Simulated assay, not measured.
Amino acid sequence: MPQPNIDAIHAALARVNDPEIRKPITELGMVESVTASAEGVVAVRVLLTVAGCPMKEQLTRDVTAAVSAVEGVTSVDVALGVMTDAQRGELRTRLRGDAPANEIPFAQPGSRTRVYAVASGKGGVGKSSVTVNLAAALAARGLSVGVLDADIYGFSVPRMLGVTGRPTQVDQMIMPPIAHDVKVISIGMFTPGNTAVVWRGPMLHRALQQFLADVFWGDLDVLLMDLPPGTGDIAISVAQLVPSAELLVVTTPQIAAREVAERAGSIALQTHQQIVGVVENMSWLDLPDGSRLELFGSGGGQAVADSLAASTGTRVPLLGQIPIDQRVREGGDDGRPVVLDAPDSPAAVALRSVADALAARSKSLVGKSLGLTPVR
């Protein structure tokens, strides 16, 4: 067999992405050296971003598989090293350029990321379930998606998406874990066990700012922010830190939930945010005889949409009605979103329909400079 070609090996390595950063390891400066013997033995030395990189075994497997496919290669020896501080600094520059360390990319005029803040007036309406399933459905469409669990006190997104890993830090950048092709960050990844978070307002604002600025999200198409119920500190901080974020209001059909959902959506009047639409969750229960049992009443989602449209003077559509489905609860407990685990179920179909509406939505021009100058 011919001796392996070094250029062909480098081309193969260029198809290997870092599992956390999702960019080729050759572009990230992670390939330190490549040698090939006449017998076809290839030695590759790869530099990890940090010593305790949780993805080093997967990276080793990916490199081995890619290089083994090159003509003439008989065996692959992958050696792992660790980047120096200077190399990590160069990596940060490659990823973020000259942007300040505390800059929020989604708040910049050139950002193409659609940010949806998923809000509700009260707890227990399934806001987090809707968030994680929309994220999984959007990622399944091929979009680059992130979820920020902004419910600091009542975080639940890690369990619902099945995230077990913890973020790693590379030169003041936090690398978010990935589950179902969705990048995820939550305060639950930084607290031991089921420890409660006991913080006042300023700490909440700072945590949200760090999640937005210090986490390396990459080039996201969509960022979903799972807000806590109500119109408190986090909702106000989101409006301040990411003014272009659009509100997605989740409610159930019952009157009590409908009234508080209207209050949650009406915050847009004070923050000058746009409301992308309303999702009605737990709309009905399908019975074996084909009939529907409306456990929480009916018409609540449309009433919220109509009320918010009247108060804001804008069009606020009812994007979907999600039926009660035991598989939604089971998937949330097991970290398997129903849109992936039972894609043909009525709830999954309804959730995918909402995701389709969000994916097709064009970027809002609210708050954006159009670069126009008046003509005299």
Rank of each mutant, 00 (worst) to 15 (best):
T195W: 02
S128M: 08
S186M: 07
I187L: 09
E32R: 13
D171F: 11
S369W: 11
V157I: 13
L358W: 02
E330W: 01
G146R: 03
G126C: 01
K127H: 06
L223A: 10
S362I: 11
M282T: 09
L13W: 02
L287Y: 09
P177L: 01
Q3S: 15
M55L: 15
A140V: 07
K183P: 00
V157E: 07
L95K: 07
V16I: 05
A135M: 05
L285F: 15
P374M: 14
G331A: 00
A207P: 02
T312C: 02
A117S: 11
T64R: 10
R166E: 15
A140D: 14
S144C: 13
E246M: 01
V132G: 08
L91Y: 09
S291T: 14
G110F: 14
H180M: 10
L224E: 01
L285S: 11
G193R: 01
G40R: 04
E32A: 12
K363G: 14
S144N: 15
N5E: 14
G218E: 10
I255M: 10
T35F: 00
A355Q: 05
V147Y: 06
C53H: 10
Y116G: 07
T168W: 10
P323D: 06
I322H: 00
D214G: 06
G154E: 09
P176A: 03
L148W: 06
P202S: 02
A196N: 12
V63S: 08
A207M: 05
Q321Y: 10
R336E: 12
T191C: 10
R327V: 00
T60K: 13
F216W: 15
M173Y: 03
V249G: 00
L227V: 02
E262Y: 06
V41F: 12
S244Y: 00
D325R: 04
L91M: 12
K23P: 04
T231N: 10
L138Q: 08
V338E: 06
L318Y: 03
I25R: 06
R352K: 15
T195D: 14
C53K: 09
E20I: 12
K127Y: 01
P346E: 06
R336H: 11
V42W: 01
S37W: 04
G331Q: 06
V242L: 08
P176L: 04
A101P: 10
P288T: 09
G154W: 09
L370H: 10
T373G: 11
A359L: 03
T26Y: 00
V375C: 10
R15F: 09
T93K: 15
R114L: 03
A310T: 13
R292I: 01
G89P: 09
Q240M: 08
V338G: 06
P202A: 01
A8V: 05
L28Q: 04
V145N: 06
T314V: 12
V278E: 04
A357W: 00
I9N: 00
S364D: 08
D325S: 07
H180K: 04
S144D: 14
D62R: 12
H10N: 14
V338R: 02
V82E: 11
E259S: 13
V73H: 04
G188V: 00
